[in-house]
Simulated scan of single mutants.
Amino acid sequence: MTESILVKLGGSVVTDKSGECKVDEARLAAIADELASRPDVRFVVVHGAGSCGHPEAKRHHLDKGLNQNNKAGIFITHNAVRNLNDAVIKALRARGVEAVGIHPLDACIANNGRLISFESGPVELLMQHGIVPVLHGDVVMDRKRGACIVSGDQLIAALPSRIRIDRIGLATDVAGVLSDGDVVPVITPETADILDIRQSDNTDVTGGMKGKISELLALAEEGTESAIFHISRLGDFLDGRDHGGTVVKGSHKQN
């Protein structure tokens, strides 16, 4: 059976998060090479917004909801992340990977910041035909707040219950989840509370590493493990080798 792998590219991987929407073209090309070299794998790619979206969302206070004064922020923020999505797709297609963008603003509805509707049918069908859907963190309409920001990590948490995903890997700019400078090899609900997981110093309206771990733990409790590793170890993860990162698992009682 053809393996289906979800690859999440952190915003700090595809952009310089300290700048204003500066795309890392060289890194995108290297990522595209890795995916292109494995034509027998079905991929779905999700990427963060990085410096292309977080500053705009913060500037327009979309993390607080929609009001009469910040309506323009929906277009401005979505346009920023859509441009980044275009750059990711361009890099993939330049290496021969058939890829197409899926925008959560078009496909999702939230309620009080959490997804309640996700039209995932096109994602599943694209993968079945060997086309790589590329999703991203985005502004979406929210029944309670008017609008909210849905992170790439929340999309990751939503996908396995809707389509078949065999493995999930999150490529970041660090070696994994760190505690006192060392990689934590395994995180479970029992160990997560005692870890000192610090927030990013850069603008992030989706919760940083703490938000990421929260989403992944919920996913693990439903039976889907995930791995967090440095982007330089993407090939190791894709090939099932040791990636030197962190594995997020469900509670011990379920293992």
Rank of each mutant, 00 (worst) to 15 (best):
A110P: 05
V174F: 06
L234H: 02
D173R: 12
G176K: 09
E119A: 15
H252M: 14
L238Y: 06
D16E: 11
C108H: 01
V150G: 09
L135D: 04
A80D: 07
L84H: 01
H47K: 08
A158P: 05
G19I: 02
H78G: 11
D239Q: 07
D33I: 02
V13Q: 04
H61I: 09
R38W: 05
F229T: 01
M141C: 02
P55C: 10
A218Y: 04
E190F: 01
H54I: 02
Q199A: 15
V88E: 12
K90V: 13
A57E: 03
Q199M: 05
T246F: 11
R164I: 03
V45S: 12
D40H: 06
D86P: 00
I187H: 08
D236F: 03
K71L: 15
C21V: 09
L159F: 09
I231S: 13
G10L: 11
H54C: 06
H60K: 08
L92M: 15
I165T: 08
S12Q: 06
R241M: 06
E225N: 11
A26S: 14
V140C: 12
D166Q: 08
I109W: 01
A175M: 13
F229Y: 02
A192D: 03
R162C: 10
I163E: 05
F229W: 04
R95Q: 04
I187M: 06
I109S: 02
L115I: 12
G137L: 03
L62Q: 10
V150D: 11
V41H: 10
L170H: 00
M141Q: 10
T188C: 13
S214T: 15
R38I: 12
C21E: 08
K58E: 09
H252T: 08
A110Y: 08
A220Q: 12
D242P: 11
G169D: 08
A218G: 15
G211I: 09
N83E: 13
